[in-house]
Simulated scan of single mutants.
Amino acid sequence: MRLGMLLAGLVVLTGCATSTPPGGRLFASNYQYSPLTPPAAPRPIPSGSESEEPSPADDPPASLSGSRDDVLAAARKLVGSKQVRVDGKTWPSDCTGFVEAVYGKAGVSFRGAAKAGDNGVTAFYRYAQAQGRVFTKGKPRPGDLVFFRETYDRNKDGRRNDGLTHVGLVDEVARDGTVVVIHRVSRGVVRYRMNLARPSVRKDPRTGVVLNDMLRVPKGKKMPVLTGQLFAAYGSVLPEPGADAVARR
């Protein structure tokens, strides 16, 4: 019994991966799997507070002790590193460990947000719903969370039923709307690009500029799947720019 509870707790803290599904084939046009195994129970994305457009934020939680600048500085410093280490503390080397480490600079703790059966990414999403806002359209702010779905076959059944599987944060938004995301993938902490106006286009055919990086890499005859195709939502829980000084009074 105790072993079962311990293993359940560890599931919440696990991060994410970006790899090829071992149980089936993924097609880039609609990122549907061609399953080879019996289906597992689908893992839905929590609903209840999503909005299309970002809205003015309420006062940040009183526990926040830092700012967006603190979070962004920590994230940018880790780019190029395989190990997630902030202020002398080493965190799990996965996407949730990276986000939790840098958000700790603002006093954010995602602990306690999970429900039974959640993975770490879903727990972060629930925290954003409860403590801030979740939105799918409009311009995010640097430091906001970015959630992705189906970046790997978590339950290994070859089907698109894994829900939220990856998280990063917004570094900047380019003039053309391309969002630069900092996140931890298998090769370390990196920057990827995502353009939701053209989610299925990897490079601008006129300029050659990358609009969407490969979030699910090709292997064999399997097609790559891009960041814009796997985007789920943004999440905002940090003080808004210009509000940090007010929050610290």
Results as ranks from 00 to 15, higher is better:
148 F>T: 02
118 D>S: 09
122 T>Q: 09
105 K>Q: 14
148 F>D: 02
72 L>T: 01
144 D>G: 04
148 F>H: 05
103 Y>V: 11
60 P>L: 02
61 P>E: 06
59 D>G: 01
132 G>M: 11
136 T>L: 04
134 V>I: 15
65 S>I: 15
94 D>E: 13
124 F>H: 11
105 K>R: 14
91 W>P: 02
87 D>T: 05
136 T>E: 06
42 P>R: 13
102 V>F: 10
67 S>L: 11
88 G>Q: 09
122 T>K: 08
92 P>K: 10
70 D>Y: 03
44 P>Q: 05
78 L>N: 04
54 P>Y: 05
98 F>P: 02
68 R>S: 04
51 S>D: 00
127 Y>L: 10
109 S>Y: 06
90 T>C: 06
148 F>M: 10
65 S>V: 15
89 K>M: 09
119 N>H: 07
135 F>L: 11
56 P>K: 13
51 S>W: 00
110 F>R: 03
59 D>S: 13
46 P>N: 01
90 T>I: 15
50 E>W: 07
90 T>L: 12
57 A>L: 14
77 K>L: 09
114 A>P: 15
62 A>H: 03
60 P>I: 02
72 L>N: 01
65 S>N: 14
61 P>Y: 10
58 D>S: 13
50 E>T: 12
46 P>V: 07
109 S>W: 08
134 V>K: 03
49 S>H: 15
132 G>W: 13
109 S>T: 15
122 T>P: 02
69 D>Y: 02
61 P>I: 15
68 R>F: 08
82 K>Q: 12
127 Y>P: 08
115 K>L: 14
72 L>V: 11
125 Y>R: 02
105 K>E: 15
60 P>K: 03
130 A>P: 07
48 G>N: 07
84 V>S: 02
143 G>P: 00
101 A>F: 05
85 R>D: 12
98 F>K: 04
65 S>H: 14
82 K>F: 14
63 S>R: 14
82 K>G: 00
115 K>G: 09
88 G>W: 03
119 N>T: 06
108 V>Y: 11
95 C>G: 03
47 S>D: 08
50 E>V: 12
113 A>H: 10
145 L>T: 09
119 N>Q: 06
69 D>A: 14
61 P>L: 15
119 N>L: 09
131 Q>F: 02
122 T>M: 08
86 V>C: 05
150 E>V: 05
52 E>N: 12
149 R>C: 12
74 A>M: 06
144 D>I: 04
95 C>T: 07
63 S>Q: 15
135 F>M: 08
65 S>P: 01
101 A>L: 08
61 P>N: 04
96 T>D: 01
